[in-house]
């Protein structure tokens, strides 16, 4: 293929190739390499393992169906680990479409570990206000969330007895798609109320949170589907993210190949009329 024909390549052929590289590994279920957990994923896992059984954990699912492919597997794996360790889960969301996903995750994990709603876990639902909600929760969680996602007053929910603010919570587990999410929880809650926190975030936002991990403000970080797959392996429940890793690897290899090919195709043009033209 000449550089000229490469430059004129219809990009729909690239879309088709990426689609095939994603569909075929999923359909035929072949494995390139096993998933190896990173220190970041291990930090997330260990932070939950280290707190005493029966502790109260805040599970903030700040994402919506738009990023469910990345966030949902880590959310489900976190719910599984928390319930396996008999933690009391207070779930909430700062994304409007978050509560149904949280409900689904909690119900799946509760069925597996025989947990009861309102006794072992509660979904407080969505609250508008972003950072204001976080700050208000530091004063009073029952006043911020007077009712749960079903409309039941928090005073009638057994798991909420004695819960006033962040002082009764041992760990914050945040599954985040962007704003409001991990950055805001670190700024408003970790720094002010010194609540230990771990985060599972979308890949596109992950580089922004590495400084928090390096500075010890986060105890663990899951970045995108790869982070979710690592965590699924640690929890011992390989599921959606682990299954998607081979398709991800093949698509990445192809995109890397196309980037090299694309640059080679533009080399002769760069020598002549000038770089950067397309």
């Amino acid at each position: 293929m000449s550089p000229d024909s490469l430059r004129r390549l219809d990009r729909r052929w690239i879309f088709l190739a990426v689609a095939l590289l994603v569909i075929l590994p999923l359909l035929f279920n072949f494995h390139i390499a096993p998933v190896q957990p990173s220190n970041r994923a291990r930090g997330f896992y260990d932070a939950i393992e280290k707190i005493p059984e029966g502790s109260v954990v805040l599970l903030a699912g700040d994402y919506d169906p738009g990023t469910a492919a990345e966030n949902y597997p880590m959310h489900l794996a976190a719910a599984r680990q928390l319930m396996r360790r008999n933690m009391k889960i207070i779930a909430m969301a700062l994304y409007p479409a978050g509560p149904p996903l949280t409900d689904q995750v909690l119900r799946i994990a509760a069925r597996e570990y025989h947990k009861r709603e309102s006794v072992d876990y509660v979904n407080l639902g969505y609250k508008v206000g972003n950072e204001l909600v976080m700050s208000q929760m530091g004063q009073s969680i029952p006043k911020t969330f007077p009712v749960d996602n079903r409309g039941v007053p928090v005073g009638q929910i057994p798991i909420m007895k004695g819960i006033q603010n962040f002082q009764q919570i041992r760990l914050l587990v945040n599954i985040s798609a962007g704003y409001p999410g991990t950055k805001e929880w670190v700024q408003q809650v970790v720094s002010r109320f010194h609540l230990p926190m771990v985060a599972g975030v979308t890949a596109v936002s992950a580089p922004e949170y590495y400084p928090y991990l390096q500075a010890g403000q986060l105890h663990g970080l899951l970045g995108g589907m790869a982070g979710a797959a690592e965590y699924e392996v640690l929890v011992g429940a390989p599921a959606l993210a682990t299954r998607g890793m081979d398709a991800q690897s093949l698509a990445h290899a192809f995109i890397a190949f196309m980037i090299v090919l694309g640059n080679l195709a533009f080399l002769p043009k760069g020598k002549g009329k000038g770089k950067g033209t397309s």
């Binding site: 990345e70 890949a203 995108g224």
Partner: peptide
């Protein structure tokens, strides 16, 4: 990685 993950999610 994020964009490919979203595609994988929909294909799944």
């Amino acid at each position: 990685m994020a964009r490919v993950s979203l595609l994988i999610g929909r294909v799944m």
